[in-house]
């Protein structure tokens, strides 16, 4: 149990996917401009990573390992993720048009979000058991959502402030991410 708690805490704060591992930074900079869109993207990422983590873990453990084709994992995982995202899109569209409206535009972007493939591969390279994999695959995207939401709040306020001309747009967004990263790097002292 403590082991799982450690994994969850580390994944959420210390090894935060955006500020420490640098996965999914493209979407972070692009989508993290507004609170509503950051929430939509974040929730879509949470659902996708948990489902993709379970699917890829099961395929690796029960199909690829017995057949000894572990080296194919990059190709297989990206195809599984692409198929999964497509499937999610169809299902959500069919059963909940309102949710589709909220998440729909972010779903196609997720296939190429490196966070999803990154977590799937990390689950395998760290040799996680099913429970550990589930905790890790849930804590990582929740950390993503958390940081992205904070970031979007600050960036909305930043829009109203005078920023030096050269720093407008992406440069100031990077500096802001650096400040958040300083704060999060201090969580490392807790464990």
């Amino acid at each position: 149990m403590t082991n799982l708690l450690t994994i969850a805490f580390t994944a959420f704060f210390i090894e935060n996917i955006l500020l420490y591992q640098f996965l999914g930074v493209c979407s972070f900079i692009g989508v993290g401009k507004k609170r509503s869109s950051s929430l939509g993207m974040g929730l879509a990422v949470v659902v996708t990573i948990i489902l993709a983590g379970m699917a890829t873990w099961a395929i690796y453990r029960y199909v690829m390992e017995p057949l000894d084709i572990g080296y194919m994992k990059t190709i297989v995982f990206i195809l599984v993720i692409a198929a999964l995202v497509q499937m999610m899109e169809t299902i959500i569209k069919k059963f909940s048009p309102a949710l589709y409206k909220a998440l729909g535009i972010y779903l196609p972007l997720i296939t190429t979000n490196c966070a999803v493939l990154g977590v799937a591969i990390t689950n395998i390279t760290r040799d996680y058991s099913f429970a550990e994999m589930l905790v890790y695959s849930a804590a990582i995207p929740l950390g993503y959502l958390f940081v992205m939401y904070i970031y979007a709040i600050i960036r909305e306020k930043l829009e109203l402030n005078p920023v030096p001309k050269a720093f407008r747009g992406i440069p100031i967004a990077m500096i802001l991410a650096a400040l958040l990263a300083i704060i999060f790097s201090r969580f490392g002292g807790l464990i």
Partner: peptide
């Protein structure tokens, strides 16, 4: 060399390039 440095350095380089373009 820490993650922070990546964001800071990338932001600064982009700002310098933007200043040049301006």
């Amino acid at each position: 060399t820490k993650p922070v440095g990546g964001f800071v350095m990338f932001g600064l380089i982009l700002a310098v390039l933007a200043a040049g373009a301006n």
